[in-house]
Design a binder for these strands. Sequence first.
DNA 1: CGTGTGATTGACGCCTGTCAACGTCTGTGG
DNA 2: CCACAGACGTTGACAGGCGTCAATCACACG
Lengths: 234, 234
Amino acid sequence: MKIDHNDTSFYNFLTSPNSLFRHLTDEELESLPFGRAPEFHKRGTILYNEGSRISGFYWIQSGIIKIYKTGVDGKEQIIRFAKPCDIIGFRSVLSNELACTSAKVIEDSKNYFVPAENLIFLVKNNGNFSMDIIRLTCKELEEANSYITDIAQKTVRERLAEILIHLKNNFDLDKENFLQINLTREELANMVGTATESVIRLLSEFKHDGIIELHGRKIKILDIKSLTRLASIF
Amino acid sequence: MKIDHNDTSFYNFLTSPNSLFRHLTDEELESLPFGRAPEFHKRGTILYNEGSRISGFYWIQSGIIKIYKTGVDGKEQIIRFAKPCDIIGFRSVLSNELACTSAKVIEDSKNYFVPAENLIFLVKNNGNFSMDIIRLTCKELEEANSYITDIAQKTVRERLAEILIHLKNNFDLDKENFLQINLTREELANMVGTATESVIRLLSEFKHDGIIELHGRKIKILDIKSLTRLASIF
DNA sequence: CGTGTGATTGACGCCTGTCAACGTCTGTGG
DNA sequence: CCACAGACGTTGACAGGCGTCAATCACACG
């Protein structure tokens, strides 16, 4: 069950300066399940549902997870996408409450499940780790507050432009510079907080104006400058 | 500079089960400035501005503080109101970043300013306190996510109804059951994320329908059931 | 009494949500 | 191999919610 310190790639990865686990001692690191093989989850798998009790958090090694809430009439509101090195579900664990979001795999994912007691032990006993968790939560909170301001004040066009920029900044591009992440029009709408038809019309408009290129679900951003202007980002 | 343990009211208050400071040792408690007199700030005072660096957090003893972000065209978006026993500004301290919100006194307030190093020391060295801080942040994050869902999916009418219920649940009523908190129509609009005129028209509508009563800025909720239905809360 | 801030009301029009119809693609089962 | 179902994407028509502008009123304050 020990982590193979000779597997330098993975060990270095877990202890690298940007890693959430950078401040763990070797002993603490070995208390976590990273010595085993990761779990594999196919596209479409639900990791947990809003309202359920979860007994630990997930560390994403590969793939993309959609985090969303279900609003009125069952309409989903996408809160964020988790990507490799992110952790999900830790909030419910730490506040010891039912999950307030659902998590669905949208790109095949390998991930590790870490039991709640491990996390709580680390938070209580390793002040630096605890600070990192707090910083992470604060960052998410700040982003949430910004998004509240945007969604309350900006038009749908501005928000869609902003989301496209956000996706470009946060997800890899393929060899032809198309966004790797595969989203349906409905999912885009559920991020922006609008109707599917509105997203379709605005994407067509952006395409017509030479700002983006579309190949089915694949999106390539051609004119980031115009898009930034459209998004009213200063 | 010691806290007067004979002042049982304040001492018991700080160590009561709901207090953020419940897990502090007497020694830790005395390292905080609660032994001094609180600072007094009049309505209208800005405690800190978005983008500024703050060197500590505030613990509110009395009064109400408006926490808001400034969006496009300088329009403010109210994130929340802080009331007695709340702390504000701690996120920027913990993540060591510039303030991402502004804080303005809207009801005369007494509060204590606690230097950043005190907070960081406690988080790193007192696991239970650290867990409480994390829980607090997680709670705020969950509320922010809920609000994102609401604002993205609900109509202005639904949101206003919801905000009124929220105010009723979170702020005291005076002897005639009017909401204690004094908000301009513009501030209400800046919470809901709409135009001032829309708030005015909807409030008149609610009043006409016998759901609320208005006396200037004072609001009394007459029919919480109808209001809940209007808010589409399930 | 003048000034300024906030509240109110009306008019107007655009953005955007909804409904409906149709096209496209993929996978499945006969 | 084809037919069909079902999910997703697209387009058009339409109405109404809500933002914006402007005028007026109410009230407090120096």
